[in-house]
Design a protein around this nucleic acid. Sequence first.
DNA 1: CAATGTCAAGAGCACTGCTCTCGTTTGTTG
DNA 2: CAACAAACGAGAGCAGTGCTCTTGACATTG
Lengths: 247, 247
Amino acid sequence: MTSAEPAAVEAREKPSTPRERARTQTIADIVRLGREHLAVHGAAALSLRAVARDLGVVSSAVYRYVENRDELLTLLLIDAYNQLGDDVDEAVNAEAEDDFAAQFRALAQAVRMWAIREPASYSLLFGSPVPGYQAPGERTTVPGTRVIVRLVGIFDAAYRAGALNAAVSPAVVIPDGLAADLATIRGEMNLAAPDATLARGVLVWTSVFGAISFEVFGQYGRDTFAARDELFDHQLRVLQGVVGLQG
Amino acid sequence: MTSAEPAAVEAREKPSTPRERARTQTIADIVRLGREHLAVHGAAALSLRAVARDLGVVSSAVYRYVENRDELLTLLLIDAYNQLGDDVDEAVNAEAEDDFAAQFRALAQAVRMWAIREPASYSLLFGSPVPGYQAPGERTTVPGTRVIVRLVGIFDAAYRAGALNAAVSPAVVIPDGLAADLATIRGEMNLAAPDATLARGVLVWTSVFGAISFEVFGQYGRDTFAARDELFDHQLRVLQGVVGLQG
DNA sequence: CAATGTCAAGAGCACTGCTCTCGTTTGTTG
DNA sequence: CAACAAACGAGAGCAGTGCTCTTGACATTG
């Protein structure tokens, strides 16, 4: 947040006037209250007026600090992305540096734990888009890609370390168009892994979020699966086999 | 509402009075307009008043036909589930009866095509839950499980026909709790496939929807993947390998 | 001390879901 | 056929929403 980036909570190095400090504090309060409302009522029901009430202020006063409802949504979006990213980083860093399978599982488990803890935030980030709201890419892309960047990093490091089983079950041809996309990604992210690994990495990525979304969004029946921890762990173990991660 | 059951579009065998026919037609119109509004503005922005305007009627009149907004949402939910189910059935039935891999891919492609064509409906069914709205299970469960029932049917038929490669890559242990859940499912759905197959089937199920959701919800960057058809087809081919479907 | 800028408050507009009442239309029945 | 009850559309109204604009109070700064 302190960096030069046009961050949500703005520049912290300039608490020059007490007025500015008060303003920064008020914005932080609004985000905090917004997060609480989000958790209780969901994104679509996020109400500026309600936040204002909780803040003990009339509704119009909030507009001094937050341009409009979408702006608050953006602040909450960035906030949530960073919470998730922090959780993931912490979980992955706790694993042995050369145990890539464990790192993968730690990442996925961290995402799932966070999603279960903060279902409304998870919905905001990975659920159906809020109608009429378009996230400003220039502010959300960086925090929004932390998890996938980290995941790809694990896979690529595993590949470089020779920890990936190249002969993953049935070889599937990669068509030209997809290969071109993967080549672009490889260039942009400075990766070493071959097409087959990258493609399967994408599948694993979407599959992890698919499994979590099913759970958080209640797509499994109410009582179809009692042993959800075991189910998810099992899915991770199968998925790590899909990319050829052993362990 | 005249019939005993609170059915969505009520009994069609009783167009006794012209009044009832008019009523049925009006409800159908409301659902049709609702679907259009859904497609354009999204579920959370679905407005009974707007539907009333399009119907050329004052807002309160709509309440003669639809109990409230949630009721309309339920009607749209069931409608969408059945549209999707019909599409899927048609696509799967077009494949050779013994080509289970093709049936699986046809099912998944049908879901994806429908999702891309009707992103708002897809969001309603598989996206973040609409805040404050709880689908009435007794009315939505049957249409809502058509796709998964069909998918499981394909996998189980393949197993019974000996078309499943039992030695799927690395064997993963199934813990007791998960095995119990799977046993229940096997009993309820009268399946033959063993735990490993069922568990992997669940993973494939969530993975397919995960991939589609990523695409529909815009989780891939704007231009990360140009060859999305190829990407999805590739994912399906890898996934069919995960359950041991050859072809 | 005075000018400047920031702030909260309140009124107001257009929209939402939903309820209630009031006449009118419509179909059924005595 | 006439009377009656059910169904219906219209309209007013309540409480809520996002958002804008004006007004007056206050603090900071030159």
